[in-house]
Design a protein around this nucleic acid. Structure first.
Length: 810
RNA sequence: GCGGAUAUGGCGGAAUCGGCAGACGCGACGGAUUUAGGAUCCGUUGGGAAACCGUGCAGGUUCAAGUCCUGUUAUCCGCACCA
């Protein structure tokens, strides 16, 4: 088969027949199958793209043949750092390199033969898209979900930009591995924390990998504890957050984060120099140092004291950077006897350690951090764990000193980026009116082309006079634009909605169009997005719902993560390993179908694994066999006379229906490797039957026809060609996916494993309709059983229908 | 440290509810065809001479365990001073 030729041929015919497009007029149930869109940082599709898109397209085609009206769009996540970094290195403008990459990738994606609905294509870097990304920002702003504040941010000195927490890996920049430092900047945030509770509880109802849901749960990090108010001797009030209020009588000092608003205020004159030095050094400490839990705790005494709200005891107030300003209240009560960190700190600085919890039925060695029996705590003595916490929290609350409180580790999402290649933030800063949103009618705020994007610590746009200078929409006075761009994750937080109405120029999408297609039924992409894209997209959906633009709570009903294809050496593919396998040469040599089929067959889809050349040769051989046998059977003259139907025919029909049943199940479950294995079995059965002298031509032809239909989603071009050769009407993808005939799957006899005392002694065929007692009797009559029965009686007999019979004798 | 996952032949990987471990394929071996090689086709292929032994390791439950329970090791992934 000339693969090149037939690929071109069918791709053209499919396009002409609009076979790949969602049918907006159809009454068939919709099915939105979505792959995470491509990031055009490299010039070409890599194996990862293929592995994501190829098998998933087979799933989509399978569903289409099952009668669903499938929508499978594709687009490009085109803004972002890599294009800009590439530009800085080579001088090629990000717009030019991105557009060129997209063009190449579009060609390659089309050559895959996937049924992407290109009429809904989107590119996030185009005005027609980012106009609405900016619109999203304005809606969030209106809703109070976008706000500005000065905050310590992760700053990459090499990329010269702020990074989201998620983009910091081991204290280093995810992209360039430079050490990340902290820096104070005024930045835009999205209030994702407002949805913390719903983002957490919503997970329970999602058909997502458990692992991913758990990662989101941990990331959101709900914790139930207690806030307690302390007052200083000078009358200042501050609160601490604790999950262990049962240890409150063991507090011997309190600690504020160095960034705490009261830090300097509480510092006494004699301590000022030391405290200032400490605050400065803490702000300089880079993430690596701060993150290391093995690092020795440091801190400084402020000179002030707080009053214990329950005992009135005098407690020294320290600053220490083991307390995080951004979590809880930025202050903690220290209980060295029952917290490892406090214990280490107290030991180092010679602070008192007071035991107030005892281990139940055992020796208490400090620090003792498990639940235990409360001691030395007034009327609460004797209470245990949760019971003690409830009682003490109630007491604190009654005294007006705080009470139970839920906290989340999730932080608000920092979306400002001091970079060029992104959607400009649609805000105008006016000296008189402050931050003023750009009126919607003025969108988009265009990203200028002629910009100096080489980094110098400032936003590239800040240096573009024409861009920056504008007028305040409120007072009309001269004003400046916000020089920052939006994190690219903002663009990808709503693209699945835009697909539904990609060419709308009056709104981001039509409510009706979205209602028709959303939510996404099956979403397929890499697991690396668990706590970023997948969380942000959920947040957007919920926020848009609350603004009345949508009517559903979750964007992605079912989520599947494909695994990672490693290099042949078992390492992740990378330039430095020199183990990159390019799809192109294989697609050239074996064809797009063989390449896709190998990806489906050679790996467990969600696991991935090392690439292996031999596997693809085996698949090419399989396709050759398929072609040969299909063409051979197609040439048989249809029989006029009655056809034989005996054991052999029954076996073939069984194989055929068994394959239909199993392939259907496996395709649904993304278990592509076993689906292909079942196809191979059916091919073997067909081939074996074809070798017989006497055969039932009608049955053989019908079986081959079903085979081609089953194969079609996995090898679309080959199947379409064979379908034509078989004389099939229309496209193979207009056919109904075969449905098994249950009658053909009922066998007269089944093979049983016969066990005596749980050891297999032989195998035997028993009637499928036989009662347990009949099987027991038949088993007892077997020579292999009788041999082992001499002088013994059956004590128990276990029959597992269709599988085994186990005789317990003694 | 916390959370999650994985561990099965020479290799990739299969095994519904606990029910014949190793489907399917690769590789290897043998045969047919061929001057030869390649390609193709047909067999055999977990180990062991056998009894038997075999799903990381040690126990346990069960008529029966890759699957359930307890402990343990290794690898991978995520989080990491979150009070």
């Amino acid at each position: 088969m000339d693969m090149k030729k037939i690929e071109k041929k069918w791709q053209l015919l499919w396009e002409k027949a609009k076979l790949n497009s969602f049918d907006r007029k159809s009454d068939a149930p919709k099915l939105y199958v979505l792959e995470m869109f491509s990031y055009p940082s490299g010039a070409k599709l890599h194996i990862g793209h293929w592995y994501n898109y190829g098998p998933t397209d087979s799933y989509a085609r399978f569903k289409k043949m099952q009668g669903y009206n499938v929508f499978q769009p594709m687009g490009f996540d085109a803004f972002g750092l890599p294009a800009e970094n590439y530009a800085i290195k080579t001088g090629v403008h990000p717009k030019d390199s991105t557009e060129k990459n997209i063009q190449t990738m579009e060609g390659q994606l089309k050559a895959m033969g996937a049924m992407f609905d290109w009429s809904a294509e989107i590119k996030t870097c185009e005005e027609s898209y980012y106009k609405w990304t900016q619109w999203m920002f304005l809606q969030l702003y209106k809703k109070g979900l976008a706000y500005r504040k000065e905050a310590p941010v992760n700053w990459c000195p090499s990329c010269q930009t702020v990074l989201a927490n998620e983009q910091v890996v081991d204290g280093r920049c995810e992209r360039c591995s430079s050490e990340v430092v902290r820096r104070d900047l005024t930045q835009w945030f999205f209030r994702i924390t407002a949805y913390a509770e719903e983002l957490l509880s919503g997970l329970d109802r999602l058909d997502w990998p458990e692992k991913t849901k758990n990662m989101q749960r941990n990331w959101i990090g709900r914790s139930t504890g207690c806030e307690i108010e302390f007052e200083t001797e000078s009358g200042e009030k501050f609160r601490v957050y604790t999950t262990r209020c049962d240890t409150v009588f063991g507090v011997t000092y309190v600690v504020l984060a160095p960034e705490h608003p009261l830090a300097r205020k509480l510092t006494t004159a004699d301590r000022e120099a030391e405290v200032d030095a400490y605050i400065l050094s803490a702000s300089k400490a880079n993430e690596i140092e701060r993150l290391s839990s093995a690092r020795e705790k440091t801190g400084v005494f402020t000179g002030s004291y707080a009053i214990h709200p329950l005992t009135g005891k005098r407690l020294p107030i320290y600053l220490a950077d083991y307390v995080l300003a951004s979590y809880g209240t930025g202050a903690v009560m220290a209980v060295p006897a029952h917290d490892e960190r406090d214990f280490a700190f107290a030991t180092k600085y010679g602070l008192p350690i007071e035991k107030v919890i005892e281990k139940r039925g055992g020796e208490t060695t400090l620090p003792f951090t498990e639940d235990g029996i409360v001691r030395g705590s007034l009327e609460f003595d004797g209470l245990f764990g949760e019971e003690a916490r409830d009682a003490i929290a109630a007491y604190i609350s009654k005294k007006g000193k705080g009470g139970k409180k839920v906290n989340y580790r999730l932080r608000d999402w920092l979306v400002s980026r001091q970079r060029y290649w992104g959607a400009p933030i649609p805000i105008i800063h006016c000296e008189r009116c402050g931050a003023v949103p750009v009126p919607e009618k003025d969108l988009p705020v265009r990203l200028p082309y002629d910009v100096e994007f080489r980094p110098d610590g400032k936003s590239p746009l800040a240096k573009h006079e024409k861009f920056m200078h504008t007028f305040c929409p409120q007072c009309g006075g001269p004003a400046l634009r916000d020089p920052d761009t939006l994190d690219t994750f903002v663009c990808s937080s709503w693209y699945y909605l835009r697909y539904a109405d990609a060419n709308n120029d009056r709104a981001p999408f039509d409510r009706e169009a979205v209602d028709r297609l959303l939510p996404v039924d099956t979403y397929v992409g890499g697991a690396e997005h668990a706590c970023m894209h997948l969380l942000y997209a959920r947040f957007f959906t919920k926020a848009l719902r609350d603004m009345g633009y949508l009517d559903f709570d979750e964007p992605f009903k079912r989520l599947v993560h494909q695994g990672v294809i490693l290099g042949p050496d078992g390492n992740r593919m990378s330039k430095s390993h020199g183990n990159i396998v390019s799809p192109d040469e294989y697609v050239n040599e074996y064809g797009a179908d063989a390449f896709r089929l190998y990806l489906m067959f050679g790996f467990s889809y969600t696991e991935g694994g090392p690439w292996n050349d031999d596997g693809i040769k085996a698949i090419a051989k399989f396709l050759d066999r398929v072609e040969k046998i299909v063409l051979k059977v197609a040439d048989y003259r249809a029989a006029r006379e009655a056809q034989p139907y005996g054991q052999e025919e029954k076996a073939l029909d069984y194989a055929r229906n068994f394959a239909i049943q199993r392939v259907t199940k496996d395709m649904e479950a993304f278990s592509f490797n076993t689906a292909i294995a079942r196809l191979m079995e059916l091919l073997n059965a067909i081939s074996k039957y074809d070798g017989l002298a006497q055969k039932n031509i009608s049955l053989l032809k019908a079986t081959v026809k079903d085979f081609v239909l089953l194969l079609a989603p996995c090898a679309p071009h080959v199947a379409e060609e064979l379908w034509e050769k078989l004389g099939g009407k229309g496209f193979v993808f207009e056919q109904k996916y075969p449905v098994e005939d249950p009658a053909a799957l009922i066998l007269d006899e089944k093979e049983y494993a016969v066990q005596v005392n749980s050891k297999i002694v032989c195998k035997a065929m028993f009637s499928a309709t036989a009662a347990d007692s009949e099987i027991e009797a038949a088993a007892l009559a077997l020579p292999a059983v009788r041999e082992r029965m001499e002088g013994k009686t059956v004590k128990k007999c276990i029959v597992v229908a269709g599988r085994l019979v186990n005789l317990i004798v003694g």
